[in-house]
Design a protein around this nucleic acid. Sequence first.
DNA 1: CTGTTAGCGCTTTCAT
DNA 2: ATGAAAGCGCTAACAG
Lengths: 366, 366
Amino acid sequence: MSVTAAGDTDGPDGSASPNGAGGSGGPRRRRRGGATIEHVAREAGVSRQTVSNVLNAPERVRPETLERVRAVIERLGYQPDQSARSLRTGERRTLAYLAPVDDPHDPNPLMGGFLEALVDAAGAAGYRVLLFRPRPGTTDPTAAVDELIAARQVDGFVLADVLAGDLRVRHLTSTGLPFAAFGRTGPDMPQSWVDIDNAAAMDAVAAHLAERGHRRVGYLGPSDDADLPWLAERRRGFREAAGRHGLELVAEPAEAGLAAAARALLRAPAGRVTAVAAATDLCALTAYEAVRGAGLAVGADIAVVGFHDLPLCRVLQPPLSSVRLPLRRLASELVDGLLAQIRGGEAPPSGVLLAAELIVRASSTT
Amino acid sequence: MSVTAAGDTDGPDGSASPNGAGGSGGPRRRRRGGATIEHVAREAGVSRQTVSNVLNAPERVRPETLERVRAVIERLGYQPDQSARSLRTGERRTLAYLAPVDDPHDPNPLMGGFLEALVDAAGAAGYRVLLFRPRPGTTDPTAAVDELIAARQVDGFVLADVLAGDLRVRHLTSTGLPFAAFGRTGPDMPQSWVDIDNAAAMDAVAAHLAERGHRRVGYLGPSDDADLPWLAERRRGFREAAGRHGLELVAEPAEAGLAAAARALLRAPAGRVTAVAAATDLCALTAYEAVRGAGLAVGADIAVVGFHDLPLCRVLQPPLSSVRLPLRRLASELVDGLLAQIRGGEAPPSGVLLAAELIVRASSTT
DNA sequence: CTGTTAGCGCTTTCAT
DNA sequence: ATGAAAGCGCTAACAG
């Protein structure tokens, strides 16, 4: 090895010399006050490599040198240039959050909170989060993913709002890149996922209602939730939980529109319900309106429970009981799963189901 | 072509060949299927930076060569490695979104929609968006900014929810890095900003109410809005606009709590109001509750107008009139201003005030 | 334990 | 219009 290495260490014609004559390649960029590893090395009186070791393999450096170099690093505010590091190691230390195709005027109300939690979780592991969206007008997210991959900008992907048979999951699986999803496509496609245990949450809701003495209850949610697994699960979960807790679930009215369905629940032929479990807080709001429209009082006459625990729950009169999602846990599990794949290479995909917490307020206790 | 190409296609002694002997410096990274510029060059029978020219200065390449190289690029799905490019040029082609310190359980309801618009606007200009937050537990965002700068990961910053005397603005100004803000700190600190014209929006609200025949009106919003410029502007804007439009603005009750203030508006000594302008949609919801609590009907008896046009506006009964923010315009202005600084070097900071649109619904027309 | 060397993939003079 | 060479800042292999 050393022989061949010596061979091209420095060709007499200087072809291999890095600091050869005619330093013509300098770019125009301003180094805006950033110290380089070279500065640190010079200042500390060591070689570049030693500085690198201080950062990446401190155990190899003599404690006293360590100390001195670290002091210089601190003083100069040095941080390694991430581009250079990435170029060398192939690690981007960046995760892509692949947002679902969505209308800015009807945003997922949870997105903000989820993203904050995600950024914190990634940050704790030394990773940044790059936000990504399909190009406007494109419904196919494939192109966006391919671009990111080709430009080698991220080490892995986080998906949210994963639908049944989600194209993004399908595509990422085929590329073999690490990804983790908030939500699941289904058992046919192995993946690292984290999800809320919607069924368990609805069981908690049913248990709560049963304990409060309700007997006839209704579920209020979009009727076309086949593509939205989380909503379908809540519906199914509540139906089954109602049975377990001895609640009579009034058949869902086939009315067109949520408002009509809500009104129908309150004048069901076999007697109206005394409690409504809603698929989301916004659906619960529809329930509020229907209850009032029928001349009844939320809480006193009809209990209502929402889902998501948006800020509006505390503003409503009476305040709305709702299911709060453990966004921070969710985000950290997602990041953990993703990093396991990135670091471990081929960690077996696995899933985590997280419990959500029922926040009881006056809408179901008055 | 093929002749010259043959020269460096595979030099046996490989002194100039990138895959020459003694490849001791090769990192462990897997090149996950990504083509390099070298591959494209070889495949197309040209030199490396002819390919580079095709990408960065197409006018210097003969059309027929251009064509051929582009075909290869397409076929190989080649995209330049962003890390390598950044290392060389100093351009990151990435913008940081510096999120405000915020509670994940009480997120800014607009953040999701704004971020989507921002990502789209940045993407249209070839930039990505990196999400950033102060480290949890830290209230001082300075450290976070410094880290990003030191690691040279972004070309500029986007700030949202800028408060009066915002620390982030102060710090970024002192570093001299390009940034653009959604919101303003005040006239003392020059900066590139974009903001909603809250006063004009409130004028539209007042005009609308006057046109509907209202004479006595009230404003409902948090009383401690001194630190929240956008809320303070709405309050002030509505007060002044009311005067212009011949509306009598009932003095704001000094009650503790928004709900109490809302109730007070409806039993003001000099006669109750017939319309309420709210600082946000959530405040409008509080108004709804107060109106109902007083045995009155929103729309028929008391008009209510919100601000933000959240999805909940359409769910409420009656649907809530509200002011819709031009998020897409906002985002693209922000990106434009930022890129002007980044590219132009020292573009003079300037501000843009955008008009928001009043969406009239039944809450103010029944 | 420290220093030397090579090169990640790209763009940019400079020379043809 | 195209090619050759240099090097951005960093880290991995190796030599001392």
